[in-house]
């Protein structure tokens, strides 16, 4: 297990809490809720060690399009970057629904 954390500047408040994804091989779950401060915080727990740079790259890409002040908890079970981005986008969609 490896734990990683990231902080990004945010512009708008997040209104509620959403949960998407599943606990399972090659997948991940995303818990997104309002941040305690004005920034966005991401806490990643992953079963695959040694990929901090890849995580940063994927999250940098996500935060070019998302500006919510969210506390995002990610529990990863070896998802590909494509699956990570899709689940994050699904969480944002769920937030808007």
């Amino acid at each position: 297990m490896e734990r990683l954390s990231f902080t990004y500047p945010a512009r708008e408040a997040v209104a509620r809490r959403v949960h998407v994804g599943v606990v399972g091989s090659g997948d991940l779950e995303v818990l997104l809720e309002p941040s305690a401060d004005e920034d966005a915080h991401v806490a990643v727990t992953t079963s695959v060690e040694g990929f901090a740079t890849v995580w940063k790259h994927v999250l940098d890409r996500f935060f070019t399009r998302f500006e919510g002040a969210a506390a995002i908890e990610i529990n990863d079970f070896g998802a590909t970057p494509g699956v990570v981005l899709l689940r994050l986008e699904q969480a944002v969609e769920a937030l808007r629904a």
């Binding site: 998407v20 994804g21 599943v22 399972g24 494509g82 699904q90």
Partner: peptide, 23 residues
């Protein structure tokens, strides 16, 4: 599709395809 997701979640669900994941 993960059985866990198909069983528990409301749509959409993630499908892993040869061209990458889709909802």
């Amino acid at each position: 599709v993960a059985l866990a997701e198909y069983t528990a979640a409301r749509p959409p669900v993630m499908v892993r395809t040869a061209d990458g994941p889709r909802l």
